[in-house]
Computed example of a mutant assay.
Amino acid sequence: MSITNNTFEYLQDLKNNNNREWFHANKKRYDTVKANFEETIKALIVSIGEFENMTGVQVKDCNYRIARDVRFSLNKDPYKTWLSASFSEGGRKSGKMDYYLHIQEGESFLGGGMYSPTPEQLAKLRQEIDYNAKELKDIIYNPDFVRVFGEAEGEAVKSAPKGYSKEHPEIELLRKKQMFYWHKFTKEEVCSPDFVKKVTEVCRTLKPFLDFLNYVFFEHQEPEIDL
Rank of each mutant, 00 (worst) to 15 (best):
P169H: 12
R147S: 12
L174F: 04
L174P: 08
P161K: 07
V146E: 09
D144I: 10
K162L: 04
K177T: 08
E167Q: 14
E167A: 15
M179W: 02
P143K: 06
S165A: 12
S159R: 15
K166E: 13
P143Q: 06
L173D: 09
G150F: 05
R175P: 02
E167T: 09
I139H: 02
Y181T: 01
G150P: 01
I171H: 10
E170L: 07
E151M: 08
A152E: 14
R147Y: 08
F180T: 11
S159L: 11
F180G: 04
D138L: 10
S159G: 06
P169K: 15
S159K: 14
W182T: 10
V146I: 09
I140M: 05
I139K: 07
G150Q: 00
A156C: 00
R147E: 10
W182R: 10
F145W: 02
K177Y: 02
W182L: 10
E167F: 12
K176E: 08
S159N: 15
Q178S: 06
E153F: 00
M179Y: 01
K177A: 05
S165M: 11
Y181S: 09
I139P: 01
E170D: 15
G150H: 03
G163L: 01
I171M: 11
E172L: 00
R147T: 10
G150W: 00
D144S: 14
A160G: 09
G150K: 00
I140N: 10
A160R: 02
N142G: 07
P161W: 07
H168R: 07
V157N: 04
P169L: 12
Y164G: 09
S159I: 02
K162S: 07
K158F: 05
Q178D: 14
D138Y: 10
R175L: 12
L174R: 11
A160N: 14
E151H: 05
S159P: 02
E153T: 03
L173F: 14
I139R: 03
K158N: 15
L173G: 14
D144K: 14
A160F: 07
G154H: 01
D144F: 10
K176L: 09
Y181A: 01
D144C: 06
V146W: 00
G163K: 01
S159T: 13
M179D: 03
K158V: 03
P169I: 08
A156P: 00
E153L: 08
S165F: 09
I171D: 01
G163S: 08
A152M: 04
E155A: 14
A156R: 13
G163H: 09
I171F: 05
Q178W: 08
P169G: 12
I171E: 04
D144N: 15
L173E: 08
A156G: 04
M179I: 03
V148P: 00
I140Q: 04
K176V: 07
M179F: 00
F180E: 01
V148S: 04
R175Y: 05
K176A: 09
A160Q: 11
D144L: 11
H168D: 15
E151R: 12
G150A: 00
P161T: 02
F145E: 05
A156F: 00
P161H: 03
E172K: 08
A152Q: 06
W182Y: 14
E172I: 09
W182F: 15
E153C: 00
R175M: 11
L174I: 06
F180V: 09
E167W: 07
K177E: 12
F145L: 01
P161F: 03
K166V: 12
A152P: 08
L174A: 07
G163F: 04
R175Q: 07
V148F: 06
P143W: 11
